[in-house]
Simulated assay, not measured.
Amino acid sequence: MNAIRIDGKAIAEDLRARVARDVASLKAEWSVIPGLAVVLVGKNPASSVYVKTKARQAQALGFKSQQFLLPGDVGEAELLEVIEELNADESIDGILVQLPLPGHIDLWRVLEAIDPAKDVDGFHPYNVGRLAAGRPALAPCTPLGVVHLIRTVVSNLSGLDVVVIGRSNIIGKPLALLLGDAGCTVTGAQLQTRNLPDFCRKADIVVAAAGCAGLVRGDWLKPGAIVIDVGINRTIDSRGTAKLVGDVDFAEASKRASYITPVPGGVGPMTVAYLLANTVNAAVSRRRLSLVVNPEARHIWPSCDREQDGAVDLQRAT
Protein backbone atom coordinates (compact mmCIF):
# COMPACT_ATOMS: atom_id res chain seq x y z
CA MET A 1 0.00 0.00 0.00
CA ASN A 2 1.25 3.46 -0.90
CA ALA A 3 -0.50 6.24 0.99
CA ILE A 4 -2.04 9.15 -0.88
CA ARG A 5 -0.59 12.49 0.14
CA ILE A 6 -3.09 15.01 1.49
CA ASP A 7 -2.09 18.22 -0.25
CA GLY A 8 -2.41 20.90 2.43
CA LYS A 9 -1.22 23.62 0.06
CA ALA A 10 -4.00 22.98 -2.45
CA ILE A 11 -6.68 22.60 0.21
CA ALA A 12 -5.55 25.79 1.93
CA GLU A 13 -5.66 27.61 -1.40
CA ASP A 14 -9.27 26.52 -1.84
CA LEU A 15 -10.11 27.72 1.66
CA ARG A 16 -8.48 31.09 1.03
CA ALA A 17 -10.53 31.44 -2.16
CA ARG A 18 -13.70 30.93 -0.16
CA VAL A 19 -12.52 33.45 2.42
CA ALA A 20 -11.78 35.95 -0.36
CA ARG A 21 -15.34 35.58 -1.64
CA ASP A 22 -16.67 36.26 1.85
CA VAL A 23 -14.45 39.32 2.22
CA ALA A 24 -15.74 40.67 -1.09
CA SER A 25 -19.35 40.04 -0.06
CA LEU A 26 -18.85 41.71 3.32
CA LYS A 27 -17.46 44.76 1.62
CA ALA A 28 -20.16 44.92 -1.06
CA GLU A 29 -23.18 44.16 1.13
CA TRP A 30 -22.21 45.63 4.48
CA SER A 31 -19.26 47.99 3.78
CA VAL A 32 -17.21 45.86 6.16
CA ILE A 33 -13.51 45.15 5.62
CA PRO A 34 -12.20 42.53 8.08
CA GLY A 35 -9.18 43.81 10.01
CA LEU A 36 -6.33 41.66 11.30
CA ALA A 37 -3.59 42.94 13.62
CA VAL A 38 -0.49 40.85 14.32
CA VAL A 39 1.83 41.76 17.18
CA LEU A 40 5.42 40.48 17.11
CA VAL A 41 7.77 40.92 20.07
CA GLY A 42 11.48 40.56 19.30
CA LYS A 43 13.30 39.38 16.20
CA ASN A 44 12.82 35.63 16.20
CA PRO A 45 13.60 34.74 12.53
CA ALA A 46 10.97 32.02 12.24
CA SER A 47 8.31 34.21 13.84
CA SER A 48 9.21 37.13 11.58
CA VAL A 49 8.76 34.99 8.46
CA TYR A 50 5.46 33.64 9.77
CA VAL A 51 4.16 37.15 10.53
CA LYS A 52 5.08 38.37 7.05
CA THR A 53 3.30 35.37 5.51
CA LYS A 54 0.14 36.13 7.47
CA ALA A 55 0.24 39.81 6.53
CA ARG A 56 0.86 39.06 2.84
CA GLN A 57 -2.01 36.59 2.60
CA ALA A 58 -4.38 38.88 4.51
CA GLN A 59 -3.67 41.77 2.17
CA ALA A 60 -4.04 39.56 -0.90
CA LEU A 61 -7.54 38.54 0.25
CA GLY A 62 -8.65 42.13 0.83
CA PHE A 63 -8.23 42.40 4.58
CA LYS A 64 -7.09 45.46 6.45
CA SER A 65 -3.76 44.17 7.75
CA GLN A 66 -1.60 45.76 10.44
CA GLN A 67 1.68 44.66 12.00
CA PHE A 68 3.09 45.86 15.30
CA LEU A 69 6.78 45.07 15.67
CA LEU A 70 7.96 45.57 19.25
CA PRO A 71 11.53 45.20 20.58
CA GLY A 72 12.42 42.05 22.49
CA ASP A 73 12.93 44.00 25.72
CA VAL A 74 9.55 45.73 25.56
CA GLY A 75 7.84 45.95 28.93
CA GLU A 76 4.76 43.87 29.62
CA ALA A 77 2.77 47.01 30.41
CA GLU A 78 3.60 48.52 27.01
CA LEU A 79 2.54 45.33 25.23
CA LEU A 80 -0.73 45.32 27.16
CA GLU A 81 -1.31 48.93 26.13
CA VAL A 82 -1.00 47.94 22.47
CA ILE A 83 -3.53 45.15 22.99
CA GLU A 84 -5.90 47.54 24.81
CA GLU A 85 -5.75 49.97 21.88
CA LEU A 86 -6.48 47.16 19.40
CA ASN A 87 -9.39 45.96 21.55
CA ALA A 88 -10.90 49.43 21.27
CA ASP A 89 -10.25 49.79 17.53
CA GLU A 90 -13.51 48.93 15.77
CA SER A 91 -11.70 48.45 12.46
CA ILE A 92 -9.78 45.49 13.90
CA ASP A 93 -11.64 42.18 14.07
CA GLY A 94 -8.75 39.86 14.88
CA ILE A 95 -5.77 40.25 17.22
CA LEU A 96 -2.91 37.78 17.15
CA VAL A 97 0.11 38.01 19.43
CA GLN A 98 2.82 35.90 17.84
CA LEU A 99 4.28 33.24 20.14
CA PRO A 100 6.66 32.57 21.75
CA LEU A 101 6.99 35.67 23.91
CA PRO A 102 10.17 36.65 25.80
CA GLY A 103 10.49 35.10 29.24
CA HIS A 104 9.95 38.36 31.13
CA ILE A 105 6.37 38.64 29.80
CA ASP A 106 3.51 36.71 31.41
CA LEU A 107 2.01 34.72 28.54
CA TRP A 108 -1.39 34.16 30.14
CA ARG A 109 -1.77 37.76 31.21
CA VAL A 110 -1.26 38.77 27.59
CA LEU A 111 -3.62 36.17 26.13
CA GLU A 112 -6.32 37.02 28.65
CA ALA A 113 -6.02 40.72 27.79
CA ILE A 114 -7.23 40.12 24.22
CA ASP A 115 -10.93 40.72 23.63
CA PRO A 116 -12.39 37.19 23.26
CA ALA A 117 -14.44 38.39 20.29
CA LYS A 118 -11.15 39.28 18.52
CA ASP A 119 -9.19 36.24 19.72
CA VAL A 120 -8.64 34.68 16.29
CA ASP A 121 -5.99 32.32 17.70
CA GLY A 122 -8.65 30.80 19.96
CA PHE A 123 -6.41 30.83 23.03
CA HIS A 124 -8.46 33.01 25.40
CA PRO A 125 -9.94 31.01 28.33
CA TYR A 126 -13.42 32.24 27.35
CA ASN A 127 -13.14 30.67 23.92
CA VAL A 128 -11.46 27.56 25.31
CA GLY A 129 -14.36 27.14 27.74
CA ARG A 130 -17.00 27.58 25.05
CA LEU A 131 -15.21 25.06 22.84
CA ALA A 132 -15.14 22.56 25.71
CA ALA A 133 -18.86 23.13 26.29
CA GLY A 134 -19.67 22.53 22.63
CA ARG A 135 -20.72 26.14 22.07
CA PRO A 136 -19.80 28.31 19.07
CA ALA A 137 -16.33 29.77 19.63
CA LEU A 138 -13.19 30.96 17.92
CA ALA A 139 -11.17 27.74 17.95
CA PRO A 140 -7.38 27.42 17.49
CA CYS A 141 -6.34 27.50 13.85
CA THR A 142 -4.15 24.39 13.61
CA PRO A 143 -6.78 22.03 15.08
CA LEU A 144 -9.38 23.52 12.73
CA GLY A 145 -7.00 22.86 9.85
CA VAL A 146 -6.40 19.27 10.94
CA VAL A 147 -10.12 18.49 11.08
CA HIS A 148 -10.61 20.11 7.69
CA LEU A 149 -7.85 17.96 6.15
CA ILE A 150 -9.37 14.80 7.61
CA ARG A 151 -12.79 15.72 6.25
CA THR A 152 -11.38 15.97 2.73
CA VAL A 153 -10.76 12.20 2.74
CA VAL A 154 -13.35 10.84 5.17
CA SER A 155 -17.06 11.45 4.61
CA ASN A 156 -18.19 10.30 8.06
CA LEU A 157 -16.12 10.71 11.23
CA SER A 158 -18.74 9.33 13.59
CA GLY A 159 -17.51 6.31 15.54
CA LEU A 160 -13.92 6.40 14.31
CA ASP A 161 -11.06 5.78 16.73
CA VAL A 162 -8.50 8.59 16.85
CA VAL A 163 -5.22 8.87 18.73
CA VAL A 164 -3.89 12.40 19.22
CA ILE A 165 -0.27 12.34 20.35
CA GLY A 166 0.47 15.58 22.18
CA ARG A 167 -1.69 17.40 24.71
CA SER A 168 -0.71 21.05 24.28
CA ASN A 169 -3.23 23.83 24.81
CA ILE A 170 -2.57 25.01 21.26
CA ILE A 171 -3.09 21.76 19.35
CA GLY A 172 -3.69 18.51 21.21
CA LYS A 173 -6.39 19.49 23.70
CA PRO A 174 -8.59 21.60 21.39
CA LEU A 175 -8.18 19.07 18.59
CA ALA A 176 -9.47 16.31 20.84
CA LEU A 177 -12.54 18.44 21.59
CA LEU A 178 -13.23 19.16 17.91
CA LEU A 179 -12.86 15.51 16.93
CA GLY A 180 -15.02 14.43 19.86
CA ASP A 181 -17.73 16.83 18.75
CA ALA A 182 -17.50 15.27 15.28
CA GLY A 183 -18.37 11.88 16.79
CA CYS A 184 -14.91 10.35 17.10
CA THR A 185 -13.69 8.28 20.03
CA VAL A 186 -10.52 10.17 20.95
CA THR A 187 -7.55 8.91 22.93
CA GLY A 188 -5.29 11.71 24.12
CA ALA A 189 -1.72 10.43 24.32
CA GLN A 190 1.73 11.87 24.89
CA LEU A 191 5.38 10.82 24.84
CA GLN A 192 5.03 9.36 28.34
CA THR A 193 2.04 7.19 27.42
CA ARG A 194 2.81 3.56 28.16
CA ASN A 195 2.42 1.18 25.22
CA LEU A 196 1.90 4.13 22.86
CA PRO A 197 2.45 1.99 19.71
CA ASP A 198 -0.35 -0.33 20.79
CA PHE A 199 -2.81 2.56 21.08
CA CYS A 200 -1.83 3.75 17.61
CA ARG A 201 -2.26 0.31 16.03
CA LYS A 202 -5.95 0.34 17.00
CA ALA A 203 -6.64 3.80 15.60
CA ASP A 204 -8.37 4.68 12.34
CA ILE A 205 -6.70 8.10 12.48
CA VAL A 206 -3.37 9.01 14.10
CA VAL A 207 -2.49 12.67 14.65
CA ALA A 208 1.11 13.30 15.71
CA ALA A 209 1.70 16.61 17.46
CA ALA A 210 4.37 15.81 20.05
CA GLY A 211 7.35 17.71 18.65
CA CYS A 212 9.51 14.59 18.35
CA ALA A 213 11.08 13.89 14.97
CA GLY A 214 10.24 10.49 13.48
CA LEU A 215 8.34 9.34 16.56
CA VAL A 216 5.59 7.40 14.77
CA ARG A 217 6.96 4.40 12.88
CA GLY A 218 5.30 2.41 10.16
CA ASP A 219 4.65 -0.63 12.34
CA TRP A 220 2.75 1.57 14.80
CA LEU A 221 -0.06 1.97 12.29
CA LYS A 222 -3.18 0.01 11.49
CA PRO A 223 -3.19 -0.80 7.76
CA GLY A 224 -5.24 1.83 5.97
CA ALA A 225 -5.07 4.37 8.79
CA ILE A 226 -5.10 8.11 8.09
CA VAL A 227 -1.99 9.87 9.40
CA ILE A 228 -1.89 13.61 10.12
CA ASP A 229 1.59 14.90 10.95
CA VAL A 230 1.54 18.24 12.79
CA GLY A 231 5.18 18.10 13.86
CA ILE A 232 7.78 20.49 12.47
CA ASN A 233 11.31 19.58 13.53
CA ARG A 234 14.55 20.97 12.16
CA THR A 235 17.17 18.24 11.76
CA ILE A 236 20.62 17.84 10.21
CA ASP A 237 21.13 14.96 7.79
CA SER A 238 24.30 12.91 7.27
CA ARG A 239 25.61 15.52 4.81
CA GLY A 240 25.15 18.35 7.28
CA THR A 241 22.12 19.76 5.48
CA ALA A 242 19.29 21.19 7.56
CA LYS A 243 15.81 19.92 6.75
CA LEU A 244 12.32 20.00 8.19
CA VAL A 245 10.76 16.70 9.20
CA GLY A 246 7.60 15.74 11.01
CA ASP A 247 6.75 13.57 13.99
CA VAL A 248 6.07 10.65 11.64
CA ASP A 249 8.59 8.52 9.77
CA PHE A 250 7.07 9.41 6.41
CA ALA A 251 8.71 6.66 4.35
CA GLU A 252 7.63 3.89 6.69
CA ALA A 253 4.16 5.27 7.40
CA SER A 254 3.42 5.73 3.70
CA LYS A 255 3.66 1.97 3.22
CA ARG A 256 0.81 1.27 5.69
CA ALA A 257 -1.41 4.36 5.74
CA SER A 258 -4.18 5.13 3.26
CA TYR A 259 -3.69 8.91 3.49
CA ILE A 260 -0.87 10.95 5.00
CA THR A 261 0.13 14.61 5.26
CA PRO A 262 3.67 15.61 4.25
CA VAL A 263 5.98 17.93 6.18
CA PRO A 264 6.21 20.60 4.96
CA GLY A 265 3.12 21.18 2.83
CA GLY A 266 0.52 19.45 4.95
CA VAL A 267 -0.93 21.03 8.08
CA GLY A 268 1.15 24.21 8.02
CA PRO A 269 -0.65 26.02 5.18
CA MET A 270 -4.00 25.29 6.80
CA THR A 271 -3.03 27.13 9.99
CA VAL A 272 -2.62 30.48 8.23
CA ALA A 273 -5.74 29.89 6.11
CA TYR A 274 -7.82 29.32 9.22
CA LEU A 275 -6.42 32.43 10.85
CA LEU A 276 -7.96 34.36 7.96
CA ALA A 277 -11.20 32.35 8.13
CA ASN A 278 -11.43 33.03 11.88
CA THR A 279 -10.97 36.74 11.23
CA VAL A 280 -13.89 36.77 8.78
CA ASN A 281 -15.98 34.83 11.30
CA ALA A 282 -15.09 37.38 13.98
CA ALA A 283 -16.00 40.27 11.67
CA VAL A 284 -19.44 38.75 11.10
CA SER A 285 -20.16 37.77 14.71
CA ARG A 286 -18.87 41.02 16.26
CA ARG A 287 -21.31 43.03 14.15
CA ARG A 288 -24.15 40.58 14.79
CA LEU A 289 -24.90 40.33 11.10
CA SER A 290 -28.14 38.46 10.56
CA LEU A 291 -26.75 36.12 7.93
CA VAL A 292 -23.57 34.72 6.51
CA VAL A 293 -22.97 36.75 3.40
CA ASN A 294 -21.72 33.89 1.27
CA PRO A 295 -23.99 30.79 1.30
CA GLU A 296 -20.87 28.63 0.87
CA ALA A 297 -19.24 30.08 3.98
CA ARG A 298 -20.79 27.41 6.18
CA HIS A 299 -18.67 24.87 4.31
CA ILE A 300 -15.54 26.48 5.74
CA TRP A 301 -16.18 25.43 9.30
CA PRO A 302 -15.36 21.82 10.26
CA SER A 303 -18.27 21.72 12.72
CA CYS A 304 -20.74 21.54 9.84
CA ASP A 305 -21.90 18.06 8.86
CA ARG A 306 -21.42 17.51 5.18
CA GLU A 307 -20.04 14.95 2.75
CA GLN A 308 -17.28 16.18 0.49
CA ASP A 309 -16.79 15.17 -3.13
CA GLY A 310 -14.34 12.31 -3.46
CA ALA A 311 -14.35 11.46 0.25
CA VAL A 312 -14.44 7.86 1.37
CA ASP A 313 -16.34 6.26 4.22
CA LEU A 314 -13.53 4.83 6.33
CA GLN A 315 -15.92 2.53 8.14
CA ARG A 316 -16.71 0.80 4.86
CA ALA A 317 -13.19 0.98 3.43
CA THR A 318 -11.33 -0.72 6.28
Rank of each mutant, 00 (worst) to 15 (best):
V186E: 07
A208K: 07
A203K: 01
I171Q: 02
A208N: 03
I205H: 05
F199K: 06
Q190M: 02
I170V: 15
Q192E: 10
R194F: 06
R194S: 14
Q192P: 00
D181E: 14
G183S: 08
G183H: 06
V207D: 12
L191S: 14
V206R: 10
C200Q: 02
Q192C: 02
D204M: 05
R194G: 03
D181I: 00
Q190P: 00
P197I: 10
G211W: 11
A203Q: 05
G183C: 04
T193L: 02
G180P: 05
G180L: 08
I171S: 07
T187W: 07
T193S: 12
A213I: 03
G180C: 04
T193G: 03
P174N: 06
C200I: 04
G180T: 13
S168N: 07
A209L: 08
Q192A: 14
G172D: 05
G166P: 03
I205V: 15
A210L: 07
L191K: 14
G183N: 05
Q190R: 15
R194H: 11
K173R: 15
P197Q: 10
G188L: 15
R201H: 13
G180F: 04
R194N: 07
D204P: 08
L191Y: 13
G211T: 06
C184D: 08
D198H: 12
V206M: 09
A176M: 01
P197H: 09
I171G: 03
V207K: 09
Q192D: 03
K173E: 13
R167C: 09
A203Y: 14
D204I: 05
G188K: 13
A182K: 04
N169D: 15
V207E: 12
L178T: 02
V186T: 06
A210S: 13
G166F: 05
K202C: 11
G211H: 10
G172F: 08
R201N: 08
T187F: 10
R167P: 00
S168Y: 11
V207S: 10
